[in-house]
Design a protein around this nucleic acid. Sequence first.
RNA 1: GCCGGGUUAGCUCAGCUGGUAGAGCAACCGCCUUGUAAGCGGUAGGUCGUCGGUUCGAGUCCGACACCCGGCACCA
Length: 667
Amino acid sequence: MTQLIRISLPDGSVREVEPGTTPADIAAAIGPGLAKAALAARVNGEVRDLSRPIEGDAELAIVTAKDEADALELVRHDYAHVLAEAVQRLFPGTQITFGPATEDGFYYDFAPAPERGPFTEEDLPAIEEEMRRVIRADKPLVREAWTRAQLIDWFQSHGETFKAEWAAELPEGEALTVYRSGEEWLDMCRGPHLASTGKLDPNAFKLTRVSGAYWRADPKRPMLSRIYGTGWLSKKQLEEHLVRLEEAAKRDHRKIGQEMDLFHLQSEAHGSVFWHPNGFVIWRALEAYMRRRLDSAGYEEVKTPQLMDARQWEQSGHWGKYRENMFVVPDEIPSTEDEGPIVSGEADMMALKPMNCPAHVLIFRQGIKSYRDLPIRMAEFGCCHRNEPHGALHGIMRVRQFTQDDAHIFCREDQLIEEIRAFCDLLDSVYRDLGFDSYAIKLALRPEQRFGTDAEWDKAEQILRDAVRATGRATAEYGWEELPGEGAFYAPKLEFHLRDAIGRTWQVGTIQADTVLPERLDASYVGEDGERHRPVMLHRAILGTFERFIGILIEHHAGRFPLWLAPVQAVVATIVSDANDYAEEVARTLRAAGLRVESDLRNEKINYKVREHSLRKVPYLLVVGRREAEEGTIALRPLGADARQEVLPVEAAVERLRAEALPPDAR
RNA sequence: GCCGGGUUAGCUCAGCUGGUAGAGCAACCGCCUUGUAAGCGGUAGGUCGUCGGUUCGAGUCCGACACCCGGCACCA
């Protein structure tokens, strides 16, 4: 008789079973309800197949739909497999590659047969139908351990060159697994999977879009055809998700920018924003706020040239490593002749600045700096140009001309941690003022293409790491993680990310500890010892750029800005023309109090005016009719259908709005 | 830059297999003096992204280019 193994269950009970017993067996022994609900098992913390035998003492928890995070991960992974199987059934000759679960679903990358070409959205309904057939067939998903040679052999003989290539690079001797779906289909996969395709809800997924995607994320390798889907545990969950997406689409900054007349883009200046008066009000309020915050945090503001000689960019290293992103301008008078070229091609080159840092070093280098002068915190709302890949442009979030809330802190090494910590606190305070309670912090480590020695990078990376730890924010709550290879060519970066309406994350703030540029541009200070020393240069931004940050603000607030940022803070709207003079007087009073106010005296019904200004997302409507004109009051109606209005004396309304319109740092 | 889709009136969009453009809202004019998310009537407005091709005839078919959207790659 074999030795029994001990299985501890979440309720604290222990079962003694034969080695090789599966979680499915145990679930069945506990009860038929659990057996039916079981999706997978957590064995010693690891999610595994229900049918995978347990060989030793273990802690076991049966995963059901109630363990939502685990369950979603499982079903999404399974949907990806079902997608791959369905596509191969419908389109023989398609090669499979990889398909993971995503935040709201799954995708799978295919190499379609060359004569077929990439998949299009028109293909999706048929593929969905085929997926439902696979699910309804309730095919068992069975795990098998194969050797690497077996895998390569199988994939090669089935024309799966991508899979074979991948298998060939796996380590020899490691246990590799494949999953069979029924008899006729399989994919190499680490698992785990549900017991069978029938465990999926055929009505809880939807294929959403197609896209190109490079094989192994490498633009030099073939482009695959990716199909995305969203997948859930139930039809209800799916429908709720689709509604959320629809709601999110309404917050799109491009749509709201149009509706609220904030800005526009046009092809003649693609990648550069035309800010309209309404949008520029937001910019100015934000800029004024940031300027006050920087002033009080010990920064000094400067303004530097837009164009500099290419030799300066060579010196800084940008010409070598960043030139493909720079706008280059010949330093010559263009020809006015009708015939012949406009520029000779022989003139010296200048370039629009893609960054402000070299210019700040040039200011630092003027005169002699003492260790007593440090830290010097040099700030600039600097307008930069970068010639970005055209496919990267996105509304006002990713543009070719943008203004950074940039600053460079020149300091001694012993001041670094404190400066970075102070920066993180300032950034945290600004984000909270602007309504962002949650943001993510990442550490981007040395890239392949870089300046400086490994020892310098080791040190710079460690300082950033230590500084974030010192603020207590290197935690899961802040999405703390390190990103290998993602730093700038001159320095590692801390990145601060916010989310847009549909959950895409965008880097906004950053701080980078740089020793390379001070060296290359020969920045130095005189130390206590009378010798010259190199300062460290911290590159940092809080908003990142006004363009991106305002884009995020628009989506975050869905256009319903807090009063201090609202382009139009209030509209005085009349009910009858008899109240016109009074309305104008009220508007004048509010303007005298520094508020941004319009009056609406049009001969329209009040319903019409309410609707129109509500759609423009004006925070307050001050309604005046005969009654208010006689009594010297206004009816104050906050934006929103659920908001209750109040009738107030004009002075009381002015006081209320003026107090609410104070920027967060003035309260 | 790469893959897929798109570009029609100020805005949102319709226009089937080719026969030379249509709606709603906005604008303008008039009526209505109105009490909290669209009062009524009328008028005007488009070289259908650009260039080229096929055709007796192109918004519609084909090609190139530009820009936009969704991803990929790149990045604040």
